[in-house]
Design a protein around this nucleic acid. Structure first.
Lengths: 241, 241
DNA sequence: TTCCCAATTTGATCGACGTCAAAGTTCTCG
DNA sequence: CGAGAACTTTGACGTCGATCAAATTGGGAA
Protein backbone atom coordinates (compact mmCIF):
# COMPACT_ATOMS: atom_id res chain seq x y z
CA UNK A 1 0.00 0.00 0.00
CA UNK A 2 2.68 2.31 0.99
CA UNK A 3 4.70 1.45 -2.07
CA UNK A 4 1.66 1.85 -4.26
CA UNK A 5 1.11 5.28 -2.82
CA UNK A 6 4.73 6.06 -3.51
CA UNK A 7 4.49 4.97 -7.10
CA UNK A 8 1.35 6.95 -7.60
CA UNK A 9 3.16 9.82 -6.00
CA UNK A 10 6.21 9.68 -8.22
CA UNK A 11 4.23 9.15 -11.39
CA UNK A 12 2.29 12.30 -10.55
CA UNK A 13 5.51 14.25 -10.19
CA UNK A 14 7.18 16.21 -13.00
CA UNK A 15 9.88 14.11 -14.61
CA UNK A 16 12.68 16.59 -13.91
CA UNK A 17 11.70 16.80 -10.25
CA UNK A 18 11.74 13.03 -9.85
CA UNK A 19 15.49 12.93 -10.31
CA UNK A 20 16.21 16.32 -8.74
CA UNK A 21 18.27 16.59 -5.58
CA UNK A 22 16.24 19.51 -4.30
CA UNK A 23 13.44 17.03 -3.65
CA UNK A 24 15.55 15.75 -0.81
CA UNK A 25 16.21 18.50 1.69
CA UNK A 26 15.26 21.39 -0.59
CA UNK A 27 12.11 23.47 -0.37
CA UNK A 28 10.39 21.31 -2.99
CA UNK A 29 10.29 18.48 -0.46
CA UNK A 30 7.42 20.30 1.25
CA UNK A 31 5.22 20.59 -1.83
CA UNK A 32 2.40 18.38 -3.09
CA UNK A 33 2.66 16.82 -6.55
CA UNK A 34 0.09 19.31 -7.83
CA UNK A 35 2.16 22.21 -6.53
CA UNK A 36 5.29 20.70 -8.01
CA UNK A 37 3.58 20.57 -11.39
CA UNK A 38 2.54 24.18 -11.15
CA UNK A 39 5.98 25.30 -9.97
CA UNK A 40 7.61 23.23 -12.68
CA UNK A 41 5.50 24.90 -15.37
CA UNK A 42 7.04 28.25 -14.42
CA UNK A 43 10.54 27.15 -13.56
CA UNK A 44 13.73 27.10 -15.57
CA UNK A 45 16.85 25.06 -14.95
CA UNK A 46 20.19 26.40 -16.00
CA UNK A 47 23.92 26.15 -15.53
CA UNK A 48 25.89 29.16 -14.36
CA UNK A 49 29.65 29.46 -14.84
CA UNK A 50 31.93 30.38 -11.97
CA UNK A 51 32.15 34.13 -11.53
CA UNK A 52 28.73 34.92 -13.00
CA UNK A 53 26.44 37.19 -11.04
CA UNK A 54 22.96 35.89 -10.26
CA UNK A 55 21.59 38.88 -8.37
CA UNK A 56 23.14 42.31 -7.97
CA UNK A 57 23.24 44.40 -4.80
CA UNK A 58 20.32 46.83 -4.90
CA UNK A 59 18.56 45.09 -7.75
CA UNK A 60 14.92 44.15 -7.51
CA UNK A 61 14.38 40.42 -7.37
CA UNK A 62 11.85 38.69 -9.58
CA UNK A 63 13.01 35.11 -9.17
CA UNK A 64 14.02 32.74 -6.41
CA UNK A 65 16.09 29.63 -7.03
CA UNK A 66 17.05 26.24 -5.74
CA UNK A 67 20.73 25.46 -5.86
CA UNK A 68 21.10 22.03 -7.45
CA UNK A 69 24.87 21.85 -7.45
CA UNK A 70 27.85 24.11 -6.86
CA UNK A 71 28.51 26.92 -4.41
CA UNK A 72 27.04 30.43 -4.37
CA UNK A 73 28.70 33.31 -2.55
CA UNK A 74 26.69 36.16 -1.07
CA UNK A 75 28.60 39.40 -0.70
CA UNK A 76 28.20 43.02 0.24
CA UNK A 77 30.23 45.87 -1.15
CA UNK A 78 30.94 49.33 0.21
CA UNK A 79 30.94 52.43 -1.98
CA UNK A 80 34.73 52.49 -2.15
CA UNK A 81 34.96 48.87 -3.27
CA UNK A 82 35.73 47.11 -0.02
CA UNK A 83 33.94 43.78 -0.11
CA UNK A 84 32.80 41.20 2.40
CA UNK A 85 31.37 37.78 1.69
CA UNK A 86 28.50 37.31 4.14
CA UNK A 87 27.45 33.79 3.30
CA UNK A 88 28.09 30.70 1.25
CA UNK A 89 25.28 28.53 -0.02
CA UNK A 90 25.50 24.91 -1.05
CA UNK A 91 23.04 22.57 -2.76
CA UNK A 92 20.19 22.10 -2.00
CA UNK A 93 19.85 25.53 -0.39
CA UNK A 94 17.16 27.98 -1.36
CA UNK A 95 18.49 31.21 -2.83
CA UNK A 96 16.53 34.37 -2.16
CA UNK A 97 15.37 36.65 0.61
CA UNK A 98 11.68 35.93 1.27
CA UNK A 99 9.34 38.84 1.93
CA UNK A 100 11.65 41.44 0.41
CA UNK A 101 11.86 42.53 -3.18
CA UNK A 102 15.15 44.40 -3.25
CA UNK A 103 18.38 42.53 -2.74
CA UNK A 104 20.83 43.93 -0.19
CA UNK A 105 23.68 41.88 -1.56
CA UNK A 106 25.21 40.29 -4.58
CA UNK A 107 24.79 36.57 -5.28
CA UNK A 108 27.51 35.13 -7.49
CA UNK A 109 28.44 31.62 -8.55
CA UNK A 110 31.68 30.66 -6.82
CA UNK A 111 31.98 27.45 -8.79
CA UNK A 112 30.09 26.17 -11.79
CA UNK A 113 26.57 25.97 -10.51
CA UNK A 114 23.23 24.56 -11.52
CA UNK A 115 20.07 26.28 -10.39
CA UNK A 116 16.33 25.95 -10.83
CA UNK A 117 14.54 29.33 -10.82
CA UNK A 118 10.91 30.27 -10.39
CA UNK A 119 8.94 33.51 -10.07
CA UNK A 120 9.01 35.20 -6.70
CA UNK A 121 5.28 35.76 -6.63
CA UNK A 122 4.56 32.08 -7.10
CA UNK A 123 6.69 31.02 -4.14
CA UNK A 124 5.20 33.77 -1.98
CA UNK A 125 1.72 32.54 -2.79
CA UNK A 126 2.58 28.90 -2.16
CA UNK A 127 4.20 29.84 1.13
CA UNK A 128 0.92 31.41 2.19
CA UNK A 129 -1.02 28.30 1.23
CA UNK A 130 1.46 25.75 2.51
CA UNK A 131 2.55 26.03 6.15
CA UNK A 132 5.22 23.40 5.52
CA UNK A 133 6.89 25.59 2.93
CA UNK A 134 6.85 28.69 5.11
CA UNK A 135 8.28 26.55 7.88
CA UNK A 136 10.98 25.16 5.61
CA UNK A 137 12.02 28.65 4.52
CA UNK A 138 12.04 29.71 8.16
CA UNK A 139 14.27 26.80 9.07
CA UNK A 140 16.77 27.72 6.40
CA UNK A 141 16.77 31.37 7.48
CA UNK A 142 17.55 30.23 11.01
CA UNK A 143 20.38 28.04 9.78
CA UNK A 144 21.83 30.98 7.87
CA UNK A 145 21.43 33.17 10.94
CA UNK A 146 23.33 30.67 13.08
CA UNK A 147 26.09 30.53 10.49
CA UNK A 148 26.25 34.31 10.17
CA UNK A 149 26.64 34.68 13.94
CA UNK A 150 29.30 32.00 14.05
CA UNK A 151 31.20 34.04 11.45
CA UNK A 152 30.74 37.22 13.41
CA UNK A 153 32.75 35.56 16.18
CA UNK A 154 35.37 34.51 13.65
CA UNK A 155 35.56 37.95 12.02
CA UNK A 156 35.60 39.89 15.26
CA UNK A 157 37.75 37.85 17.57
CA UNK A 158 39.92 35.29 15.79
CA UNK A 159 43.48 35.71 14.54
CA UNK A 160 44.35 35.37 10.85
CA UNK A 161 45.62 31.85 11.52
CA UNK A 162 42.39 30.86 13.24
CA UNK A 163 40.28 32.50 10.55
CA UNK A 164 41.89 30.51 7.75
CA UNK A 165 41.70 27.29 9.75
CA UNK A 166 38.05 28.02 10.55
CA UNK A 167 37.30 28.51 6.88
CA UNK A 168 38.99 25.26 5.90
CA UNK A 169 37.20 23.47 8.69
CA UNK A 170 33.84 24.78 7.52
CA UNK A 171 34.50 23.69 3.94
CA UNK A 172 35.78 20.30 5.07
CA UNK A 173 32.59 19.68 7.00
CA UNK A 174 30.24 21.06 4.30
CA UNK A 175 31.62 19.40 1.19
CA UNK A 176 31.08 15.69 0.67
CA UNK A 177 34.51 14.12 0.88
CA UNK A 178 35.92 12.39 -2.20
CA UNK A 179 36.95 9.41 -0.13
CA UNK A 180 35.62 8.15 3.14
CA UNK A 181 39.05 7.74 4.71
CA UNK A 182 40.87 11.05 4.61
CA UNK A 183 39.14 14.35 4.29
CA UNK A 184 40.09 15.72 0.89
CA UNK A 185 38.32 18.29 -1.28
CA UNK A 186 38.65 21.13 -3.78
CA UNK A 187 38.34 24.63 -2.40
CA UNK A 188 35.29 26.32 -3.95
CA UNK A 189 36.85 29.76 -3.50
CA UNK A 190 39.95 31.52 -4.78
CA UNK A 191 42.40 33.10 -2.34
CA UNK A 192 40.81 36.45 -3.12
CA UNK A 193 37.36 35.13 -2.19
CA UNK A 194 38.69 33.52 0.97
CA UNK A 195 40.23 36.86 1.89
CA UNK A 196 36.90 38.61 1.28
CA UNK A 197 35.19 36.03 3.43
CA UNK A 198 37.62 36.31 6.33
CA UNK A 199 38.19 40.06 6.30
CA UNK A 200 41.85 39.59 5.37
CA UNK A 201 44.08 40.27 2.38
CA UNK A 202 45.12 37.72 -0.23
CA UNK A 203 48.69 37.78 1.04
CA UNK A 204 47.73 37.03 4.61
CA UNK A 205 45.52 34.13 3.54
CA UNK A 206 48.38 32.74 1.50
CA UNK A 207 50.86 33.07 4.35
CA UNK A 208 48.54 31.34 6.79
CA UNK A 209 47.86 28.52 4.33
CA UNK A 210 51.60 28.07 3.98
CA UNK A 211 52.00 27.98 7.72
CA UNK A 212 49.23 25.38 8.16
CA UNK A 213 50.87 23.35 5.42
CA UNK A 214 54.32 23.54 7.03
CA UNK A 215 52.81 22.60 10.37
CA UNK A 216 51.34 19.51 8.73
CA UNK A 217 47.75 20.43 9.51
CA UNK A 218 46.82 20.38 5.81
CA UNK A 219 48.25 19.12 2.54
CA UNK A 220 47.80 21.25 -0.58
CA UNK A 221 48.10 20.24 -4.22
CA UNK A 222 47.71 22.60 -7.17
CA UNK A 223 46.55 25.44 -4.87
CA UNK A 224 42.95 24.31 -4.84
CA UNK A 225 43.06 20.74 -3.64
CA UNK A 226 43.30 20.29 0.11
CA UNK A 227 43.67 17.22 2.29
CA UNK A 228 43.08 17.26 6.03
CA UNK A 229 44.86 14.33 7.69
CA UNK A 230 43.35 15.02 11.10
CA UNK A 231 40.19 17.07 11.39
CA UNK A 232 40.70 17.55 15.12
CA UNK A 233 44.02 19.28 14.58
CA UNK A 234 42.40 21.63 12.10
CA UNK A 235 39.58 22.28 14.53
CA UNK A 236 42.11 23.10 17.22
CA UNK A 237 43.93 25.49 14.87
CA UNK A 238 40.55 27.14 14.24
CA UNK A 239 40.26 27.98 17.92
CA UNK A 240 37.39 25.60 18.64
CA UNK A 241 38.77 24.87 22.12
CA UNK B 1 -19.62 47.82 13.56
CA UNK B 2 -15.93 47.89 13.27
CA UNK B 3 -15.60 49.62 16.60
CA UNK B 4 -17.99 47.18 18.21
CA UNK B 5 -15.87 44.32 16.95
CA UNK B 6 -12.84 46.08 18.35
CA UNK B 7 -14.44 46.51 21.75
CA UNK B 8 -15.48 42.92 21.82
CA UNK B 9 -11.94 42.09 20.82
CA UNK B 10 -10.26 44.08 23.54
CA UNK B 11 -12.69 43.02 26.23
CA UNK B 12 -11.88 39.43 25.37
CA UNK B 13 -8.20 40.08 25.77
CA UNK B 14 -6.22 39.48 28.97
CA UNK B 15 -5.93 42.72 30.93
CA UNK B 16 -2.13 42.75 30.94
CA UNK B 17 -2.02 42.21 27.18
CA UNK B 18 -4.36 45.11 26.55
CA UNK B 19 -1.77 47.60 27.72
CA UNK B 20 1.27 45.63 26.55
CA UNK B 21 3.56 47.00 23.87
CA UNK B 22 4.22 43.56 22.44
CA UNK B 23 0.67 43.63 21.11
CA UNK B 24 1.94 46.22 18.63
CA UNK B 25 4.65 44.72 16.46
CA UNK B 26 5.42 41.77 18.73
CA UNK B 27 4.53 38.18 18.09
CA UNK B 28 1.35 38.50 20.17
CA UNK B 29 -0.09 40.73 17.48
CA UNK B 30 -0.67 37.61 15.39
CA UNK B 31 -2.66 35.73 18.00
CA UNK B 32 -6.41 35.43 18.53
CA UNK B 33 -7.92 36.53 21.85
CA UNK B 34 -8.40 32.88 22.79
CA UNK B 35 -4.75 32.15 22.12
CA UNK B 36 -3.73 35.23 24.06
CA UNK B 37 -5.70 33.98 27.04
CA UNK B 38 -4.03 30.60 26.85
CA UNK B 39 -0.58 32.10 26.45
CA UNK B 40 -1.26 34.51 29.25
CA UNK B 41 -2.21 31.70 31.59
CA UNK B 42 1.29 30.24 31.21
CA UNK B 43 3.30 33.43 30.95
CA UNK B 44 5.21 35.41 33.54
CA UNK B 45 6.27 39.04 33.38
CA UNK B 46 9.40 40.15 35.14
CA UNK B 47 12.06 42.81 35.38
CA UNK B 48 15.69 41.91 34.82
CA UNK B 49 18.54 44.11 36.02
CA UNK B 50 21.35 45.12 33.70
CA UNK B 51 24.05 42.46 33.58
CA UNK B 52 21.81 39.55 34.44
CA UNK B 53 21.99 36.49 32.27
CA UNK B 54 18.73 35.24 30.74
CA UNK B 55 20.06 32.23 28.84
CA UNK B 56 23.51 30.70 29.00
CA UNK B 57 25.55 29.41 26.05
CA UNK B 58 24.97 25.67 25.74
CA UNK B 59 22.01 25.63 28.09
CA UNK B 60 18.80 23.97 27.09
CA UNK B 61 15.98 26.42 26.60
CA UNK B 62 12.59 25.89 28.14
CA UNK B 63 11.16 29.36 27.69
CA UNK B 64 10.87 32.03 25.03
CA UNK B 65 10.23 35.68 25.81
CA UNK B 66 8.94 38.93 24.49
CA UNK B 67 11.10 41.93 25.26
CA UNK B 68 8.81 44.64 26.62
CA UNK B 69 11.46 47.25 27.32
CA UNK B 70 15.21 47.52 27.47
CA UNK B 71 18.02 46.05 25.41
CA UNK B 72 19.26 42.44 25.34
CA UNK B 73 22.69 41.49 24.10
CA UNK B 74 23.37 38.13 22.47
CA UNK B 75 26.97 36.98 22.69
CA UNK B 76 29.25 34.07 21.96
CA UNK B 77 32.33 33.19 23.91
CA UNK B 78 35.38 31.14 22.96
CA UNK B 79 37.00 28.66 25.33
CA UNK B 80 39.80 31.10 26.20
CA UNK B 81 37.36 33.88 27.09
CA UNK B 82 37.37 35.95 23.91
CA UNK B 83 33.87 37.25 23.43
CA UNK B 84 31.82 38.61 20.56
CA UNK B 85 28.39 40.19 20.75
CA UNK B 86 26.44 38.83 17.78
CA UNK B 87 23.20 40.72 18.16
CA UNK B 88 21.25 43.34 20.08
CA UNK B 89 17.54 43.04 20.63
CA UNK B 90 15.13 45.82 21.42
CA UNK B 91 11.47 45.84 22.43
CA UNK B 92 9.23 44.39 21.11
CA UNK B 93 11.55 41.70 19.73
CA UNK B 94 10.99 38.03 20.34
CA UNK B 95 13.80 36.35 22.28
CA UNK B 96 14.57 32.75 21.47
CA UNK B 97 15.75 30.47 18.70
CA UNK B 98 12.70 28.65 17.33
CA UNK B 99 13.01 24.97 16.44
CA UNK B 100 16.10 24.42 18.53
CA UNK B 101 16.32 23.48 22.14
CA UNK B 102 19.94 24.23 22.99
CA UNK B 103 21.16 27.79 22.97
CA UNK B 104 24.36 28.51 21.05
CA UNK B 105 24.84 31.84 22.77
CA UNK B 106 24.35 33.82 25.92
CA UNK B 107 21.48 36.27 26.25
CA UNK B 108 22.09 38.98 28.83
CA UNK B 109 20.27 42.15 29.79
CA UNK B 110 22.34 45.13 28.65
CA UNK B 111 20.07 47.60 30.40
CA UNK B 112 17.28 47.11 32.89
CA UNK B 113 14.82 45.04 30.93
CA UNK B 114 11.26 43.84 31.20
CA UNK B 115 10.30 40.55 29.62
CA UNK B 116 7.26 38.32 29.30
CA UNK B 117 8.15 34.62 29.18
CA UNK B 118 6.20 31.56 28.14
CA UNK B 119 6.94 27.86 27.69
CA UNK B 120 8.75 26.90 24.53
CA UNK B 121 6.40 24.03 23.79
CA UNK B 122 3.36 26.28 23.86
CA UNK B 123 4.79 28.68 21.29
CA UNK B 124 5.91 25.80 19.08
CA UNK B 125 2.40 24.38 19.15
CA UNK B 126 0.77 27.73 18.42
CA UNK B 127 3.20 28.32 15.57
CA UNK B 128 2.01 25.06 14.03
CA UNK B 129 -1.61 26.07 14.38
CA UNK B 130 -1.22 29.70 13.40
CA UNK B 131 0.45 30.46 10.07
CA UNK B 132 0.56 34.14 11.00
CA UNK B 133 2.73 33.40 14.03
CA UNK B 134 5.14 31.20 12.10
CA UNK B 135 5.31 33.94 9.51
CA UNK B 136 5.95 36.59 12.14
CA UNK B 137 8.79 34.56 13.66
CA UNK B 138 10.17 34.04 10.18
CA UNK B 139 10.08 37.77 9.50
CA UNK B 140 12.00 38.52 12.67
CA UNK B 141 14.60 35.86 11.84
CA UNK B 142 15.10 37.48 8.46
CA UNK B 143 15.49 40.88 10.05
CA UNK B 144 18.12 39.49 12.41
CA UNK B 145 19.85 37.80 9.49
CA UNK B 146 19.99 41.08 7.56
CA UNK B 147 21.42 42.80 10.62
CA UNK B 148 23.97 40.05 11.23
CA UNK B 149 25.21 40.29 7.64
CA UNK B 150 25.40 44.05 7.85
CA UNK B 151 27.63 43.58 10.90
CA UNK B 152 29.76 41.03 9.12
CA UNK B 153 30.65 43.78 6.67
CA UNK B 154 31.41 46.10 9.57
CA UNK B 155 33.50 43.54 11.43
CA UNK B 156 35.42 42.33 8.41
CA UNK B 157 36.06 45.45 6.40
CA UNK B 158 35.64 48.66 8.38
CA UNK B 159 38.28 50.59 10.32
CA UNK B 160 38.01 51.16 14.06
CA UNK B 161 36.75 54.69 13.39
CA UNK B 162 34.06 53.45 11.03
CA UNK B 163 33.09 50.64 13.38
CA UNK B 164 32.45 52.98 16.30
CA UNK B 165 30.57 55.42 14.07
CA UNK B 166 28.51 52.53 12.65
CA UNK B 167 27.60 51.42 16.15
CA UNK B 168 26.54 54.90 17.20
CA UNK B 169 24.57 55.28 13.99
CA UNK B 170 22.77 52.00 14.60
CA UNK B 171 21.85 52.99 18.15
CA UNK B 172 20.78 56.47 17.05
CA UNK B 173 18.38 54.98 14.53
CA UNK B 174 17.06 52.22 16.82
CA UNK B 175 16.42 54.16 20.01
CA UNK B 176 13.51 56.54 20.16
CA UNK B 177 15.02 59.98 20.49
CA UNK B 178 14.34 61.95 23.66
CA UNK B 179 13.52 65.04 21.64
CA UNK B 180 12.33 65.32 18.08
CA UNK B 181 14.87 68.02 17.18
CA UNK B 182 18.33 66.72 17.85
CA UNK B 183 19.17 63.08 18.04
CA UNK B 184 20.14 62.42 21.63
CA UNK B 185 20.14 59.17 23.58
CA UNK B 186 21.76 57.06 26.30
CA UNK B 187 24.09 54.32 25.14
CA UNK B 188 22.68 50.94 26.21
CA UNK B 189 26.17 49.42 26.32
CA UNK B 190 29.34 50.04 28.30
CA UNK B 191 32.63 50.64 26.49
CA UNK B 192 33.52 47.00 27.17
CA UNK B 193 30.31 45.82 25.52
CA UNK B 194 30.81 48.12 22.54
CA UNK B 195 34.31 46.70 22.15
CA UNK B 196 32.91 43.15 22.25
CA UNK B 197 30.36 44.14 19.66
CA UNK B 198 32.87 45.70 17.27
CA UNK B 199 35.73 43.27 17.70
CA UNK B 200 37.93 45.97 19.27
CA UNK B 201 39.48 46.71 22.66
CA UNK B 202 38.05 49.10 25.22
CA UNK B 203 40.94 51.47 24.65
CA UNK B 204 40.42 51.68 20.91
CA UNK B 205 36.70 52.33 21.36
CA UNK B 206 37.50 55.09 23.81
CA UNK B 207 40.05 56.69 21.51
CA UNK B 208 37.66 56.64 18.55
CA UNK B 209 34.86 58.13 20.65
CA UNK B 210 37.24 60.90 21.66
CA UNK B 211 38.17 61.51 18.04
CA UNK B 212 34.53 61.66 16.92
CA UNK B 213 33.88 64.07 19.78
CA UNK B 214 36.83 66.31 18.87
CA UNK B 215 35.73 66.26 15.23
CA UNK B 216 32.31 67.53 16.35
CA UNK B 217 30.45 64.51 14.98
CA UNK B 218 29.05 63.68 18.41
CA UNK B 219 28.65 65.32 21.82
CA UNK B 220 29.12 63.19 24.94
CA UNK B 221 27.97 63.85 28.50
CA UNK B 222 28.68 61.58 31.47
CA UNK B 223 30.14 58.88 29.20
CA UNK B 224 26.78 57.39 28.40
CA UNK B 225 24.74 60.24 26.98
CA UNK B 226 25.35 61.03 23.32
CA UNK B 227 24.00 63.74 21.04
CA UNK B 228 24.29 63.60 17.27
CA UNK B 229 24.00 67.10 15.78
CA UNK B 230 23.98 65.83 12.20
CA UNK B 231 23.06 62.24 11.48
CA UNK B 232 24.45 62.48 7.94
CA UNK B 233 27.92 63.30 9.21
CA UNK B 234 27.80 60.29 11.52
CA UNK B 235 26.62 58.15 8.65
CA UNK B 236 29.52 59.37 6.53
CA UNK B 237 31.97 58.59 9.34
CA UNK B 238 30.47 55.10 9.44
CA UNK B 239 31.51 54.57 5.84
CA UNK B 240 27.96 54.49 4.44
CA UNK B 241 29.13 56.19 1.20
C1' DT C 1 54.93 21.14 -26.15
C1' DT C 2 55.57 26.22 -25.33
C1' DC C 3 53.95 30.64 -24.34
C1' DC C 4 51.23 33.74 -21.79
C1' DC C 5 48.36 35.50 -18.30
C1' DA C 6 46.26 35.10 -14.03
C1' DA C 7 46.68 33.33 -9.51
C1' DT C 8 49.54 32.50 -5.78
C1' DT C 9 53.57 32.87 -2.97
C1' DT C 10 57.28 35.24 -0.78
C1' DG C 11 59.84 39.22 1.02
C1' DA C 12 60.49 43.95 3.04
C1' DT C 13 58.41 47.62 5.25
C1' DC C 14 54.65 50.30 7.42
C1' DG C 15 50.77 51.52 10.19
C1' DA C 16 46.53 50.57 12.75
C1' DC C 17 45.19 48.57 16.58
C1' DG C 18 46.45 45.84 20.77
C1' DT C 19 48.87 45.70 25.17
C1' DC C 20 50.51 47.46 29.36
C1' DA C 21 50.48 51.12 32.63
C1' DA C 22 48.73 55.07 34.97
C1' DA C 23 45.71 58.93 35.67
C1' DG C 24 41.11 60.76 35.63
C1' DT C 25 36.06 60.44 36.02
C1' DT C 26 31.59 58.76 37.50
C1' DC C 27 28.78 56.03 40.35
C1' DT C 28 27.57 53.80 44.76
C1' DC C 29 26.83 53.34 49.29
C1' DG C 30 27.61 54.18 53.94
C1' DC D 1 29.16 64.41 51.79
C1' DG D 2 33.19 61.49 51.22
C1' DA D 3 35.67 57.12 50.30
C1' DG D 4 36.23 53.38 47.43
C1' DA D 5 35.27 50.83 43.38
C1' DA D 6 34.28 50.50 38.71
C1' DC D 7 34.53 52.54 34.46
C1' DT D 8 36.79 55.52 31.14
C1' DT D 9 40.46 58.11 29.18
C1' DT D 10 45.17 58.94 27.93
C1' DG D 11 50.00 57.77 26.96
C1' DA D 12 54.01 54.83 25.47
C1' DC D 13 55.25 51.07 23.01
C1' DG D 14 54.87 46.45 20.55
C1' DT D 15 52.85 43.42 17.16
C1' DC D 16 49.89 41.47 13.71
C1' DG D 17 48.25 41.98 9.50
C1' DA D 18 48.23 45.49 5.46
C1' DT D 19 50.74 47.41 1.77
C1' DC D 20 53.96 47.52 -1.91
C1' DA D 21 56.90 44.94 -4.87
C1' DA D 22 58.78 41.00 -7.13
C1' DA D 23 59.29 36.10 -7.97
C1' DT D 24 57.04 31.72 -8.79
C1' DT D 25 53.53 28.54 -10.12
C1' DG D 26 49.72 26.71 -12.70
C1' DG D 27 46.32 26.46 -16.35
C1' DG D 28 44.61 27.31 -20.94
C1' DA D 29 45.32 28.31 -25.89
C1' DA D 30 47.85 27.95 -30.09
Amino acid sequence: MDSQQKNLHSSEMPAVCRVCDARHGGVCATLTPAQLFELNRHSTRRKVDAGNELIGQGESVSHYSNILSGVIKLSKMMADGRQQIVGLQFAPDFLGRPHLCESTMTAEAATETEICSFPRSLIERMANETPGLERKLHTQSLKELDEAREWMLTLGRKTAQEKVASFLYMIATHIDPDHGEQNTFDLPLSRADIADFLGLTIETVSRQMTKLRKDGVILVENNRHVTVPCLDRLSAAAGND
